[in-house]
């Protein structure tokens, strides 16, 4: 697991994360990544129990019946106020499908 991160790896992860990293920062991110991964890589030494021996959490799969809806529109204005762009009570976004 002794992974080495190259500036190119960092650029690829940034693209997956929808983040842009300047060329100047790529190298330092890669170096920090190496240090972090070297530390986290200690995990490799661990021998772990099989899946069947694992303990499940006390609270899981919490479901409830739908019910008691609030009156329509009572929160609309507050939420719409946070929109960067609005068209009436609609969220205005860029066109995502092209007609070309």
């Amino acid at each position: 697991m002794a992974t080495k991160a190259s500036p190119e790896d960092v650029r690829r992860l940034a693209a997956l994360s929808r983040i842009e990293i300047s060329d100047a920062d790529l190298q330092s991110f890669a170096e920090e990544f190496d240090a972090i991964l070297a530390y986290v890589g200690k995990l490799e030494e661990l021998t772990l129990p099989s899946v069947s021996e694992r303990v499940l959490p006390a609270v899981r799969n919490v479901l409830r019946e739908d019910g008691e809806p609030h009156a329509p529109g009572v929160y609309t204005e507050k939420i719409v106020e946070q929109f960067p762009e609005r068209d009436g009570n609609y969220l205005s976004v860029k066109q995502i499908l092209s007609h070309d």
Partner: peptide, 22 residues
């Protein structure tokens, strides 16, 4: 950003078993 990238890495195909699942 550092942690988002690190998280993206440990969850990415090829590394998720070695890091996240472990």
């Amino acid at each position: 950003i550092r942690r988002i990238l690190l998280g993206t890495f440990v969850l990415s195909s090829g590394y998720i078993d070695a890091y996240y699942r472990k």
